[in-house]
Amino acid sequence: MMTATEKLNIRFHTGLTQEEKKFLYLLAKLVEDTDNMETKYALDIQDVMCELGFPFSSDFHPLTNVTYLLRSEVLDFFRKEDENRIQTSWLTGILYGAEETQLYVQIDIELKDFFLNLKENPEMITFCDVSHLERTISKRLYYLITHLGEKAGTSVYTMDELFETLEVSGRSYSQFSHFKQRILDKAVKEINEKTDLLIDITPMRTGRKVTKVMFSFQRLPL
């Protein structure tokens, strides 16, 4: 099973706009290891507007739209250490100050490791630009294969890990042939045609049942 941070990294790269990513990075720069669930992070509204590329204005509705969407998106993942299921959102609390100069944000403590990782790795903002891929599952598969930064190699994932990461219902694809034809083959084809990544898949069986999939990959110069 992937760690919560790895799963959240995939959501970060494949489910958010550049403005949303930049906002989360600005927030991550304020997060400390000693923070707790009561910690509130203060950001200057005009500074954030500027960093996100919005024009200088007393109207900060573009920013409220960004925070609204981050507050609305449901994150669903499992903690690796105890396999407890967590459902939360990128932001758990948002308060715009009465004088309209400060923004106060709270996060779920379950996301602290993700934010600390983002704080130490700002290159995550520009890494893995897959906005030109049409299929969301293609984006998730691309990052799953490339998130360790290797240029070539093999990765093996169980069927449950693939269902979870690609956000596909395992009950809908009890037969591997259907999953391969309708999900994997289409995603691999789009990635191979439109990105710097070449992928080949090899089913791995336990008895007659496919229980894992091996991905052989190579990143090519752009």
Rank of each mutant, 00 (worst) to 15 (best):
T126W: 11
T126I: 11
T126L: 14
F127C: 10
F127Y: 07
C128K: 06
C128M: 11
C128Q: 06
D129C: 11
S131A: 13
S131T: 08
S131H: 11
H132T: 08
L133G: 02
E134W: 12
E134P: 07
R135C: 04
T136K: 11
I137M: 01
I137W: 05
I137N: 06
S138E: 03
S138H: 04
S138T: 03
K139I: 08
R140T: 10
L141G: 05
Y142E: 05
Y142V: 07
T146E: 02
H147L: 14
L148S: 12
L148D: 13
G149E: 03
E150C: 10
E150L: 14
K151I: 14
G153T: 02
S155K: 12
S155Y: 05
S155Q: 10
V156C: 02
V156W: 06
Y157S: 03
Y157F: 14
T158V: 07
M159H: 03
M159Q: 04
M159R: 09
D160Y: 08
D160Q: 14
E161P: 00
L162M: 14
T165N: 07
T165I: 09
L166R: 00
E167K: 08
V168Y: 00
V168L: 03
S169I: 04
S169G: 15
S169K: 10
G170I: 05
G170V: 07
G170N: 13
R171A: 15
S172E: 07
S172N: 12
S174R: 07
Q175T: 10
F176I: 01
S177D: 12
S177H: 13
S177C: 12
H178W: 10
H178T: 05
F179M: 01
F179E: 02
K180I: 09
K180N: 10
Q181W: 09
R182Q: 14
I183V: 11
L184N: 00
K186E: 03
K189I: 08
K189L: 04
E190H: 04
E190D: 05
I191K: 05
N192R: 04
N192P: 00
K194P: 04
L197I: 00
L197F: 01
L197S: 00
L197K: 02
L198Y: 11
I199F: 03
I199K: 01
D200Y: 06
I201R: 01
M204W: 12
R205H: 15
T206E: 10
G207D: 09
G207S: 09
R208P: 08
R208T: 13
K209R: 14
T211Y: 07
T211Q: 09
T211N: 13
T211L: 11
K212V: 07
K212S: 12
